[in-house]
């Protein structure tokens, strides 16, 4: 009898311990949100979304150019990264099976784990040095290099989950493998692929290090892809390390907006994932 009580007590203790550990995951997230909202919310105004930063000494101003710059570079990075990631994944999932696929898969996993500052240095060497100047293009390439392995691996996983019977149905109708892969397999996996793409975008939206030596940042509006361009994470970084109180407030507001955007992206990724399961 005693042993039963002991056993039940041990079970409860361990359950409590594991629950506490699981809850601990939430703590940093809640702390980040609470703190950023507290510090940033008061500085959010219409100006923040429409103005560019004011010169030192003047109060007010916003991060409109940073948001636009981030949007441009993420869009450009997606244009580069999506086809490479998705087509590469189709090769691995639908055509692969040879040794080269194993090598590519391993390389993608290593690439995904490379510190993003190194990705930035690679883009610097490949683009900034030969083009003799920092540029939005170099920033986008650096971001694309981070996106590609994420998109490649998530897309491959999604394609592998498509039942073989659909591929066979298409092939048996005399549809070539490449058309089958694009129009049947990829299409069936599309919602899952979109989830991976959104997660990749959420990941690079907050990247600062790869942009330091590539896009550099810009205090003004710039739409030239070959010139330095502002980006939200860069502006947050620059404002946060500046000595001015007003810029600190902008940095907090920027942090709040960035975290909100990433939160929204993750939520929509989950929504996509959910609607796929329903089918």
């Amino acid at each position: 009898m005693k042993s039963v009580i002991l056993r039940k007590g041990a079970n409860m203790a361990m359950t409590g311990l594991m629950l506490a550990a699981a809850l601990a995951v939430l703590v940093p997230l809640v702390l980040i949100f609470v703190h950023i909202i507290k510090m940033g919310l008061s500085s959010i105004s219409l100006d923040f979304f429409t103005q560019i930063p004011k010169p030192t000494g003047e109060t007010g101003g916003g991060m409109a150019n940073g948001m636009a710059g981030s949007a441009v570079m993420i869009a450009l990075a997606s244009i580069i990264g999506l086809p490479i990631g998705i087509f590469g994944a189709i090769y691995l999932s639908e055509y692969g099976g040879s040794r080269i696929s194993t090598v590519i898969r391993f390389a993608a996993d290593v690439l995904a784990g490379i510190p993003s500052i190194i990705t930035g240095m690679v883009a610097y060497t490949l683009l900034v040095v030969p083009m003799k100047g920092f540029s939005a293009l170099a920033g986008a390439v650096a971001l694309a290099m981070i996106m590609i392995p994420i998109i490649l691996r998530t897309t491959e996983e999604q394609l592998k989950m498509v039942p073989g019977s659909l591929r066979e149905a298409s092939l048996a109708l005399g549809v070539p493998l490449w058309r089958t892969s694009l129009k049947v397999t990829l299409r069936s996996a599309m919602t899952g692929v979109m989830t991976g793409v959104l997660l990749a975008i959420a990941r690079v939206a907050g990247e600062t290090a790869p942009l330091l030596f590539t896009a550099l940042g810009n205090q003004f509006w710039s739409s030239k892809l070959t010139a330095p361009m502002a980006a939200m994470p860069l502006q947050i970084f620059n404002f946060a390390i500046s000595p001015y109180e007003d810029w600190h407030r902008l940095a907090w507001a920027g942090a709040l907006v960035l975290v909100t955007i990433m939160f929204a992206l993750s939520l929509s990724a989950r929504y996509f994932g959910r609607s796929r399961q329903k089918n």
């Binding site: 019977s165 066979e168 298409s170 092939l171 048996a172 005399g174 549809v175 058309r179 129009k183 069936s188």
Partner: peptide
């Protein structure tokens, strides 16, 4: 395969397509 068609054990219509599109799938996908 265009000359030798195949029907499988488990019915496998394309789930993302309508009835109409399934019938015409051999043309549409090509």
């Amino acid at each position: 395969r265009r000359r030798v068609g195949m029907v499988f054990q488990k019915p496998n219509p394309f789930p993302a397509m309508s009835i109409y599109d399934n019938v015409i799938a051999g043309y549409k996908l090509n």
